[in-house]
Design a protein around this nucleic acid. Structure first.
Lengths: 344, 344
DNA sequence: CTGAAAGCGCTTACAG
DNA sequence: CTGAAAGCGCTTACAG
């Protein structure tokens, strides 16, 4: 089979390669008959311009890098798995493809080089990052070199990188959770927060504390636990919380639903019933929250629409570099289910 | 900043572009001193050859397409979400990148064109497909044009496409499940199988029936249910099974764990206890199987190692096209947990 | 061991 | 409206 390139299409259509290119790219200055004729040849032969030629001539890749940072196994968590789906589908709705990398962190030399290579080889027009801590020199470096960066959960207004676009969680979810718990009459409140240095973890910790102060809740060392963001970490933190029992809280507020699921397992093992003995709240709106028993009351975010927004804004920035950094805050919505009871 | 290309590196290093290229590609015919010197310049400047130039000169992309076909929302299913992780990590271990597409099917014209475009633009060296039915003209078409295709759950020896590489489930899982159920003394067996035309669904249906015949189990129309592969479909199928009750089976054998989870929800709603009133078996070895209550007894597959194998074999085929089609069968392993009881 | 040169397939000013 | 030509950044025979 003869190699199919623009020269061949030009020959078959009886025009020049320039004209083929104009038709392929949908430029206006081609008369309809010519366009239709060339288009017919193109379709008949299933001709697609080779990406390499287009790139070298200055076109964009139409590809976004998706960098998924997690030190744990993300294969098993639905919540973070869904992110790749949202990003991929969001990008596809703009005709963009996604080039995925999974990395333990952005600080090991190998990982840094892996990411840099992808940008510097010009494999992608922009990069989307998920799972970063709030201090990532690599992101600042990439952004300062003019790369377009979209980040989930990263807030560094001090860096003033105009082409670093982000979405962030609202910063007051923790205090909303405490409001809710107090509204149900709870005063013995335990919090399992993430000890990670994600922006959301940091703000949520402060917000939990602020909420407790506001309601004059006693803050007990032992009831302020640190976990990660995974189910296992929630399980472990809760087991520790229950270790040589002592007085028990009436409610445990988890920093996310996965952690709450871990709390469920730990409580079940200890024979503590939910919500009769201990109530539980989560944050996220995980798909499993409604099928677990009892269904988990949670402050839910609409991740899908926010990833779509992040992707859209990132793609928009490719065409027209923004001149100031932009972020957007996700707002949560309380979904009450069966994991919390009122204390009289 | 001056554009950084091989000409610039050559100038800085005082050699020709040819030599720069030789160093970049690690060719042997460069004396160590020259190599080290050029390498130093390359590293200092963080030079990476532009992909476009390399491609046009005939290099491969180092990228695999990952085509994830699902008509349901895959964002919510851990099992299939984990596939993208296995494929991405497996590819990365060979230095390959993954370009992800999520498609409802491989038959709509838009989807066909989307996939074809990716191959024909030469964005990828090979494609990995997951979630296909066992009759996909597009796959056969792509393979016949010389593209390297790796497929999960596809078995068409009749097509004899040498560059179509696959992994498949063992074909006797259904009968193993029935052996197990009968071993526990069950005779009233319901099966919820997938009605999809995936190769695994088809073989599993036959295998369930074969197992039941072997043990002389009465096959009741109402107890042979069709679902999909999702939790919701399992829930629905089980609800139907229980509709205007009649006699109940003592065990329900689900075609996968997600479907089994749906069965859990349906039984819980109907106030039927597991395993006291009805036992349940699953297939897959889903991560949630061990935390759900009661933990689900399942025939587990090691998906990770098999995806790694599929990816490895696909990548190997890029370098040296195989001369006959290759498949590999996954074998399951029974993991007994708490969802089945012995019938005396 | 090394450089000059051809060539990969496009797009896009440029000239007409 | 359209074609001839330059140019994008690499790699790789080829010649020495």
């Amino acid at each position: 089979m003869k190699e199919l390139n623009s020269t061949e299409i030009a020959r078959l259509a009886g025009v020049s390669r320039s004209t083929v290119s104009r038709v392929v790219n949908g430029y206006a200055n081609v008369p309809p008959e010519t366009r239709d004729h060339v288009m017919k040849i193109i379709n008949e032969n299933e001709y697609y311009p080779l990406l390499s030629g287009q790139l070298l001539a200055g076109k964009r890749t139409g590809t976004l890098g998706f960098f998924w940072i997690s030190d744990a196994s993300i294969a098993s968590d639905t919540q973070s798995s869904s992110f790749v789906v949202h990003v991929t589908e969001g990008a596809a709705s703009h005709g963009y493809l996604i080039l995925t990398s999974i990395l333990k962190n952005l600080t090991d030399e190998d990982n840094i080089n892996w990411v840099k290579r992808i940008f510097l080889q010009k494999r992608i027009d922009a990069g989307i990052f998920v799972g970063v801590s709030n201090d990532e020199p690599l992101l600042d470096d990439l952004a300062s070199r003019g790369n377009i960066i979209g980040v989930f959960d990263y807030y560094r207004p001090d860096k003033n990188a105009p082409n670093l676009i982000s979405i962030n969680f609202e910063t007051d979810t923790g205090s909303k959770v405490i409001d809710y718990a107090c509204g149900l009459g709870h005063r013995k409140i335990a919090v399992i927060n993430s000890g990670l240095n994600h922006y959301s973890s940091m703000t949520r910790r402060q917000s939990f504390l602020a909420g407790m102060k506001k309601h004059n809740i006693e803050i007990r060392e032992k009831w302020m636990c640190n976990a990660g963001i995974s189910e296992e970490s929630g399980y472990k933190a809760c087991k520790e919380l229950l270790g040589n029992r002592g007085e028990l809280p009436t409610i445990i507020c988890a920093n996310n639903d996965s952690v709450a699921f871990g709390v469920y397992s730990a409580l079940r093992e200890e024979g503590i019933s939910i919500p009769d003995q201990i109530s539980i709240t989560g944050i996220d709106g995980h798909v499993r929250a409604k099928t677990i028993v009892p269904p988990l009351t949670s402050f839910a975010f609409n991740f899908k629409s926010f990833f779509y927004s992040l992707v859209s804004r990132t793609i928009a920035a490719i065409a027209a570099k923004p001149d100031n950094p932009a972020t957007e805050f996700l707002h949560s919505e309380l979904v009450e289910r069966g994991s919390c009871r009122r204390i009289e």
